[in-house]
């Protein structure tokens, strides 16, 4: 069975699995071949990782960011049509954009069939959706899955587990930004050592980008329509225009999780997150620490830790 690697929350894992293929949020690693100047380290790591994946892996990338869009082109030079580029609209307020997303999922479905998948039989999509919805809901309520799930970034699940294990109280922080890579898990320990704890994971592929809960009666009526509602109408991402959905979601989540500060982890050359930091400072209602991250060493542990310590120390001194 083919594994379908993806790394964007608007690629519904349910849709892939309903076609009888294995969905996997890819956790990228750099090949060590050297950085391409100006390229987002995450996008490059995704390209490096998928370029080295075996024949059994096919990949779905999206147009949600320009770097990944061009990355897909680079990847296609070697992998050919084993790479599928899903057009994910940036606009979300017009019915036409929603319809376009629907057509794109149908096109994805045809591609999956071309790679050995089968058109979902009656009830199959509904079943996968119900299963994922249950699992996601348990995760939302603090239950850590035993196995890495297919429906989100597995690093986000491990982060939740680590954050739970390491929680010794302290200043409550949220993290927001692009998708986490394996080595980013160190941030839990660093925050903990500095006297803080993570109460909110708003990174891409984590809690923020889980789809809305499905309505069982709507699934029964039209499963694909309900899938699109839960994803396209509700997942707040950085590429959407206007960008208000993300800021609204974040302001609510910060209140709900009582975060006292927010750490914005953004990759160097990621313009989308970078430009939003100034707005986040206006809308989040809490202190923001803007952290630009390079490749594997993410700009040096010492620098990151020192900035985290300074942030947490200053938050501790504020009246709570």
């Amino acid at each position: 069975m083919k594994t379908v690697a993806y790394c964007h929350p608007l690629v519904p894992s349910e849709w892939i699995e309903a076609h009888g293929l294995r969905a996997r949020w890819t956790v990228p690693r750099h090949s060590g071949a050297g950085a391409i100047c100006g390229m987002c380290p995450y996008a490059q790591a995704v390209v490096d990782t998928l370029a080295g994946a075996g024949e059994e892996t096919i990949a779905v990338l999206t147009t949600a960011c320009d770097q990944m869009r061009h990355g897909a082109g680079l990847l296609a030079e070697g992998l050919g049509d084993r790479v599928f580029l899903l057009n994910v609209p940036s606009t979300w307020q017009s019915p036409a954009s929603r319809a376009y997303y629907t057509e794109e999922l149908q096109r994805l479905g045809r591609w999956l069939v071309g790679w050995g998948g089968r058109r979902p039989a009656a009830g199959q999509l509904a079943q996968v959706m119900a299963d994922h919805d249950r699992a996601r809901n348990a995760f939302r309520h603090g239950q850590i899955p035993d196995e890495p799930p297919s429906w989100c970034n597995p690093v986000a699940v491990r982060l939740a587990a680590e954050a739970k294990r390491a929680d010794r109280g302290g200043v409550a922080l949220g993290i927001v930004g692009g998708p986490l890579m394996e080595h980013d898990l160190a941030i839990v320990e660093w925050i903990n050592a500095a006297g803080g704890r993570i109460v909110l994971d708003a990174t891409c592929g984590g809690y923020r980008t889980l789809p809305e809960r499905f309505d069982p009666s709507a699934i029964e009526r039209d499963a694909l329509a309900e899938l699109i509602r839960a994803y396209f109408d509700h997942v707040p991402t950085i590429h959407q225009r206007p960008g208000s959905r993300l800021h609204d979601w974040l302001a609510n989540a910060i209140r709900e999780h009582r975060a006292e500060g927010l750490l914005c982890l953004r990759y160097v050359w990621c313009d989308l997150w970078h430009a939003e930091v100034a707005r986040l400072k206006e809308t989040a209602g809490v202190t923001i620490l803007d952290m630009d991250l390079g490749d594997e060493d993410r700009g040096g542990e010492g620098r990151v830790v020192a900035r985290l310590e300074a942030m947490i120390e200053s938050l501790r001194k504020q009246p709570r």
């Binding site: 940036s90 225009r241 960008g243 313009d271 989308l272 430009a275």
Partner: peptide, 18 residues
């Protein structure tokens, strides 16, 4: 126009809007 555009323009236009 957004969608298949450079991230710089999309991000800067969003800042303008804000």
């Amino acid at each position: 126009s957004v969608g298949a555009t450079c991230d710089d323009m999309s991000a800067i236009a969003q800042r303008l809007d804000e």
